[in-house]
Design a protein around this nucleic acid. Structure first.
Length: 104
DNA sequence: CTCTTGACCATGT
DNA sequence: AACATGGCCAAGA
C-alpha cells in the first residue's frame, strides 16, 4: 500500500463530523483505493482510537463491521449512540440519514 | 512466485 | 428483510 493513500484515509477519518458516519466504500472511492476491503485492513493496523474515530466507519448497507478491535460490535454501537447516532429496532443498523455515502 | 485471507460489495433467491 | 454466492485486489505467509 502507498503511504500516501494510507494518510489520505486517516485524514478523511478526522473530517467525519460528530454525529455522522461514513462507509468503507466512500472512503475507498475518495482515497482512490480499488478494493474497499483494504480500508478495513489499513485502519485495523493503526489502532489509534484517540486520534482517529474508526468507529464512525460502517458497511455500505448500514450495518457494523465484524472486526472492530475494541470490544466488538456492541462497544462500537455504544460509542456511536453516545455521539447521538440512532439505530434501527434491532440495534444492528444505523439509520440512513446519519450515513455519508459520498465524501465531498 | 503462488496461495490464502480479509473491519467489503452487488446481486440473486 | 435475511441469507448465500461470487467478485474484487492488495498484503502477508
Amino acid at each position: 500500500m502507498d503511504q500516501q493513500k494510507i494518510n489520505k484515509v486517516f485524514s478523511l477519518l478526522t473530517l467525519i463530523p460528530k454525529g455522522k458516519v461514513t462507509t468503507y466504500k466512500a472512503l475507498a472511492l475518495k482515497a482512490r483505493i480499488k478494493n474497499p476491503r483494504l480500508i478495513g485492513s489499513i485502519i485495523h493496523k493503526n489502532t489509534d482510537t484517540k486520534k482517529y474515530p474508526c468507529h464512525r466507519v460502517i458497511r455500505s448497507d448500514g450495518s457494523i463491521a465484524n472486526g472492530y478491535a475494541f470490544g466488538g460490535k456492541s462497544d462500537q454501537i455504544n460509542l456511536l449512540k453516545s455521539e447521538g447516532i440512532a439505530f434501527n429496532k434491532n440495534s444492528t443498523k444505523i439509520l440512513p440519514s446519519y450515513i455519508i455515502r459520498t465524501i465531498q
